[in-house]
Design a protein around this nucleic acid. Structure first.
Lengths: 215, 215, 215, 215
DNA sequence: TATGAATGAGTTTTCATTCAT
DNA sequence: GATGAATGAAAACTCATTCAT
């Protein structure tokens, strides 16, 4: 599929590596790092056990690549909208929509990210924190743009807003789709974004700020 | 240290179990279930390996108790405020404050919950989901009360609001304190709650709802 | 039962030891040496685990005493008839009858001897071989007496006859009662002894001897 | 050693399994199931500990195979004569001779069967009882043939005769060779068979039957 | 004397990794 | 490059025995 028949010699090279990586991703999404064995991966990839070590340095290395493989497409679903020139409101909507699609497509695959198993590796934990930080910066930039454009209140704490928006995506949406297996609808999503955009407070008391002042 | 000076003789009675449990909690917070060994736990608890099995049936059993030990106080920090008779706004503030205190006290302990490692045990996964559901119901009830009292807008999706509030606590606050090691201040917290209560949208466009209508 | 009330101090001494021994016998008859634990024995004897070691040097020592305790009564069932003054034929009948009674009484208890688990201890193996040798000598003496009295053929190999008679008791009878759980009747027993006494050969060819001569 | 000189390259192919099995048989014949360790077996087989598990599922599985390995040839020594067309008397002689050869060849191997250690596994116990039953049936059929041919008395209890003949082989002969380490000679064997065939009773009283009648 | 909490030596088993073919 | 047989380090767990009370 990847190579033509004419390039016979190299056909298998790329193939084997990919076969193994895909098999590993499948396995790691089903089970714990420690519950997945190299033997299983090799069997699913239909290669010999030794072959795994031709392409990956160790089980841990293979896991890290599997993780990145999944994480990349996930991060994409956020970042590809960050430089849109439409309204910020529209951008948030776009991000959330793209993210939902991805969640539904990969309902199972994203387990990997949601139960955060990989965090047990110190190194990956750092990697994840770094990536989240980058993402957060992208989002806060977006919000800054929104403030400049007077779309967004100027007195909010931008970092907090960014973090809450990330949580809204990864944890609220992700949790519903992946863990609770809920078939999240556009309408619910709008309601969710509405809360983020307009708050839950009643208009009567709109304008109040936390901390709650003595009444 | 745990016992009074007067009761020197019985110093150790009942202590061993606690020593072991605390050692286990410490270890499980540092590392994976599979990376923690009974030998290490026994060493840290300063007891023999066999003693661990006098008090806990298995490594898995010990893990579950360690998990509950941490989780219980965590759930407390939410639920003890749910039936307050003050304003809902005040209650949310109280929950967040109590939660922050707990996070700071246990900076390490709560790792356990945040990185969700335990979810690899099917049984615990179910337990966690159930507890979260209970908590969610408590919070949605609170919001319903708020709507009746006209504190909260009547057109929000209560479940979504509840989920977002939980994420605000567990992931936004928890992530900052525990993972990013940020010394979260009351002021930032107020800003965070302000976003949840008033939204990020500017007053000019206040009232708009998602999805974004074609402009 | 063993001590009167007046001798209160020593009542428990003998009691505890016996309690433990009896409990051990019961357990060892139910299960393998390695499958029986000191804890179980202590529980069944209703004493503390440490108490077992007050009376018996080790698990192995306790096993040996348990074994002897059973073996003694077993050996009795043979030897008490060896010096009878009746005919040898009658004596054999008496031995077999007594043995059968014992087998039925102790259907389970004698497992211990029949599956010969204890032979795994070199020392006990030697003990068993010695005892069997003594018994064999008692029986060959009996047969010698029978030859003198012309009850028994003078041209038989006495040792072989003794061994076959022992096997008849321990293995044929024992196997049927204990392993195959057959309710052995007097009549069958007579048939068995008849074979031992008269052989299976037909009268026509009676008198032939082994090895079979070329025909 | 096991392979021919010409096929040097494949010397080890399939060998490991046999090495391990033979080592296991040796160990299990020397000691208890529980006293033999996988480590010892691996050492004696000159393979790594893990290799044992490449070929056998567990220690228990290895034991069962070791047992069958010994038991099969043992059962053979009886059954291969059961359908001979010579006289029954000759057949019994043949069985006993073959059995003696086997006993001498395998002096140690057959320990396994004689001390019946394996009976601690319920499953094997059942297997052994079944096989013995089959064997018994083979032998009783033989005796029935002997009765038809008037070689054997028609008034004997065939089952009893069969059981006694089995005991004669397994316990009398086996015990002498394996346990008592006696160098059993053809002559003694003939004497033994003579007793089984002609009984021990003197001709004078030949014809008497058990139970002994009141005198 | 009687106890049972504490212990650690010893066992089976798994599985990532190596390396000869 | 591809393989999979061979390996042994590492881990959970058991239980006879000790010893302070």
């Amino acid at each position: 599929m990847l190579m033509t028949v004419t390039n016979n010699r190299k056909k298998d090279f790329g193939n084997k590596r990919e076969q193994i990586l895909l098999a590993a991703v499948e396995m790691f999404l089903e089970k714990d790092f420690y519950q997945v064995t190299i033997t299983e991966i090799a069997e699913r990839a239909e290669v010999g056990k030794g072959t795994v070590y031709e392409y990956f340095s160790s089980k841990e290395g293979l896991f890290k690549e599997s993780f990145s493989y999944c994480a990349d497409s996930y991060l994409q679903s956020f970042s590809k909208h960050l430089f849109e020139t439409t309204s910020v409101k529209q951008t948030l909507q776009d991000i959330v929509n793209t993210h939902l699609e991805l969640l539904k497509d990969n309902r199972n695959k994203l387990h990997l990210l949601f139960n955060e198993r990989p965090l047990s590796f110190q190194e990956l934990q750092a990697w994840v924190i770094d990536r989240r930080q980058e993402l957060l910066e992208g989002i806060t930039n977006l919000f800054r743009k929104g403030i400049d454009a007077k779309e967004i209140r100027s007195d909010i704490d931008i970092e907090m807003a960014g973090r809450l928006f990330l949580a809204l995506n990864c944890v609220v949406m992700g949790g519903m789709v992946v863990l609770d297996n809920i078939d999240l609808e556009e309408e619910q999503l709008s309601k969710l974004l509405d809360i983020f955009w307009n708050g839950i407070g009643n208009l009567q008391v709109r304008g109040d700020r936390f901390p709650v002042s003595a009444e």
